[in-house]
């Protein structure tokens, strides 16, 4: 068997119910996409967590740099008016 360190890393996304988004749940090692899907099924959907799986090579993901935290995220902190919390929600509107 190949050493697991030789298998590339994949990120796993699971859709828990029809209509909801796929959400990142973790990662795993696999030789290719097919194996990654089956491993994801075996590792991440044992307790009925999902109805659909995406796997993406971890190398395909471009991540923000922690050093960019200030210019990226800090400016949003004092702009609470961007939160849609200053409106009265009409009664009977359920999915807000």
């Amino acid at each position: 068997m190949a050493n697991s360190s030789e298998f590339p890393l994949w990120e796993v996304f699971i859709r828990s119910h029809g209509g909801l988004n796929h959400k990142h749940v973790g990662s795993l090692h696999a030789a290719d996409a097919q194996m990654a899907l089956e491993h994801a099924r075996d590792v991440y959907t044992r307790r009925m967590e999902g109805v659909s799986i995406w796997v993406v090579p971890s190398t395909a993901i471009t991540a923000s740099d922690p050093a960019d935290t200030d210019p990226f995220f800090e400016p949003a902190k004092d702009k609470i008016y961007r939160h849609p919390t200053f409106y009265d929600i009409p009664e009977g509107l359920k999915h807000m």
Partner: peptide, 12 residues
């Protein structure tokens, strides 16, 4: 198992 994922697959 030879790997964690395969280990879990076999116990499944």
């Amino acid at each position: 198992g030879p790997e964690l994922e395969i280990d879990m697959a076999m116990t499944n």
